[in-house]
């Protein structure tokens, strides 16, 4: 890969994070180019989801740096300077608005219709007028095949439909990168492939994506690179081909246990 850092859309630089005594991420480094699809695999508790949540500071890293679109972001929290903390907090939404995220448990807003779920960010973050926002939101929902569900509340939707709403909600904001955090893990088996197809559509459109998943077949199909994580560290990064033929003992053990 090119060593010039400005070629990367996203750089994760020596990111560490612990929850109390538990070191969830230990000095993680990863660079992602524009248009690249990276799948992160590894056993549960290896820090995959936490890494995603560090990228948009929903769970801010303890140390390290995120460079996104040439802008550097670090965690900041002063014990005494409350004003500085406020100023810092005010900046974060700008970063997050450029990074779409879809969660394992959908996290759609149950008190809003499908259309309101998607148009909320357009109105409040992209500052669109209400009518314009609804129009864009409706288009976004149409792309995920939900144009007949605009006025429906989430508790009338299936898991797969809720996840489509969540995908539309993220995509409507026209993000530069999408983060998928085990988005099929909470779905009934028959609904999984539909959501994977949505992600495949984004791959074809050239969206930059980081996908944490347990769907190995899918990961090896769509990824340009695969990242294997274990115990808070990136153990190996490579093309699907390289990872499939890995000789690294932990990666090998994980893959054979899962592919059996």
């Amino acid at each position: 890969m090119n060593q010039n850092s400005s070629d990367y859309l996203l750089e994760i630089k020596s990111v560490s994070k612990s929850f109390g005594e538990l070191h969830v991420l230990k000095d993680v480094n990863l660079n992602i180019a524009k248009g690249e699809v990276v799948c992160i695999i590894g056993p549960s508790g290896s820090g995959k989801s936490t890494l995603l949540r560090c990228i948009n500071f929903i769970s801010p890293p303890d140390s390290g740096e995120i460079v996104f679109d040439k802008v550097s972001w670090r965690s900041y929290r002063s014990k005494f300077n409350v004003l500085a903390n406020f100023r810092y907090e005010k900046k974060l939404p700008a970063l997050r608005a450029e990074i779409g995220m879809v969660f394992q448990h959908f996290n759609v807003f149950p008190h809003m219709t499908t259309l309101e779920n998607v148009s909320l960010g357009l109105q409040k973050v992209r500052k669109m007028k209400k009518d314009k926002a609804k129009e864009v939101a409706a288009q976004s929902l149409e792309q995920v095949g939900l144009s007949d569900k605009l006025q429906v509340y989430p508790d009338q939707l299936s898991g797969g439909q809720k996840q489509r709403v969540a995908i539309a909600r993220a995509l409507a904001l026209n993000p530069k990168v999408m983060l998928f955090d085990e988005v099929t893990s909470a779905l009934d088996p028959e609904l999984v492939s539909g959501i994977l197809d949505e992600i495949r559509r984004l791959v074809r459109e050239g969206m930059t994506m980081i996908i944490v998943t347990h769907e190995m077949k899918f990961a090896f199909q769509v990824a340009h690179r695969i990242v294997f994580m274990d115990q808070g560290k990136i153990v190996q990064v490579g093309t699907p081909e390289e990872i499939r033929n890995t000789q690294e003992p932990r990666a090998k053990a994980f893959l054979s246990s899962i592919l059996e």
């Binding site: 974060l92 939404p93 700008a94 997050r96 969660f103 909320l120 409040k124 973050v125 993220a170």
Partner: peptide, 14 residues
């Protein structure tokens, strides 16, 4: 659920 504020933050709400 914490996921509700996670999702709200993720779309850029303060």
């Amino acid at each position: 659920d914490q996921g509700q504020s996670d999702a709200a933050f993720a779309i850029g709400l303060n």
